[in-house]
Design a protein around this nucleic acid. Structure first.
Lengths: 195, 195
DNA sequence: TTGCAAATTTGACCGCGGTCACTAAATAAT
DNA sequence: ATTATTTAGTGACCGCGGTCAAATTTGCAA
């Protein structure tokens, strides 16, 4: 028999997430240390790991929520009217991930949280993104703006592949940033989606 | 003034690489520990880090050499005669990377070795791969087997993007392996290259 | 041969993520 | 009310990658 978590536990979890978000906002996600989180939250180290599988599990909750926010924003704008318009819709999310390679790695590797609800935020966001883009592609196909000799899901996944490719290349070079990530992405998506 | 490395240093480096390769062969690349390497090589821990930037730097040398070997093999076979033939040429490398996510991460993140020759094996292999594939694509374009409304380099990079996408997805699911990586890759490459 | 400077190696030490046997608190059973 | 049982939290401890001032070895020149 599983028992509902006590309020104390929910408060502890919320406190940990709040503190972590705070540290990330001020120090950057790459400078977040578990010891800092637990110290500022006023709990022991072991407590954190009873709430989250590991450090990445914690980060995934926060990053996943942010990604979901971007997806909400995309969703609210409705289907794009062209490939260029689609790229514009994607841009905020692209820039968010491009801002820090820790985020990129997290999204690519995700190790999962420990929660009973199995709320693997990253995975959920991933599928939602593909679904959303696939819908857009379907609309654009109907309008003749995207080639329709392949299923929307395949094309949507392809867009994600190019996004990851562009980001990975960007994080490989030592010179931080020369051109916006978007201009590297555009030619690929154009060649992939154009009729 | 830079001086050529002494014999002793070359031997130490070779010994470290040999021991590391040995451990990887018997224990797997994910179970390699720095302490084991230096102990079995008969040197102190600090020595390893004076030869390689970090643990990944060491691994990159070995993995990079392996990748180069696959590229040599590809090269020796000459240009493929069709998209399917191209996929067959790629398959060994794909399977090598698919075998262990440590290898995949390494190739995607590479942090670099410390050597003066700046022999960033991974980076070199990366460019060589794109160049090789671009040549193939150009040949296939000339034969009408691949669409020729885009530069070969773009198409080659796209193939790599799809390869990474398929691998990333594969490493995300908990169920180890259902179908060969190749069958996941084929539809993307077909849709990407077909005229 | 001797002395010096550069090159190479050393290993004690550190930071940080993660574990686990134990204590404390909350809830259920008597 | 008292005891038993489950849930939450604790912090000393560990593993392992990585650092650095000091020690050692090597090459070269006087």
């Amino acid at each position: 028999m599983v028992r509902a978590p006590q309020q104390r536990r929910l408060e502890t979890r919320a406190k940990l997430l709040a503190v972590a978000a705070d540290i990330i906002a001020s120090e950057g996600i790459g400078n977040l240390r578990v010891e800092d989180v637990v110290q500022r939250a006023g709990v022991a180290k072991g407590t954190l790991f009873s709430h989250f599988k590991d450090k990445d599990g914690l980060l995934a909750i926060l990053v996943g929520a942010q990604v979901m926010q971007y997806l909400d924003d995309m969703d609210a704008l409705g289907a794009p009217s062209s490939i260029d318009s689609l790229l514009n819709r994607i841009e905020p999310l692209l820039n968010y991930i491009a801002a820090d390679r820790v985020i990129f790695d997290l999204l690519l590797r995700y190790s999962g949280s420990i929660s009973d609800h199995s709320d693997e935020v990253i995975t959920a966001g991933f599928y939602r993104q593909i679904e959303l883009w696939a819908n857009w592609v379907a609309v654009l196909q109907a309008q003749g703006h995207v080639r329709n000799n392949h299923p929307p899901a395949l094309l949507a996944e392809g867009v994600q592949a190019f996004m990851n490719q562009v980001l990975a290349l960007r994080f490989c070079q030592k010179t931080p940033a020369d051109v916006p990530a978007m201009s590297a992405l555009r030619p690929f998506v154009m060649a992939w989606l154009a009729p």
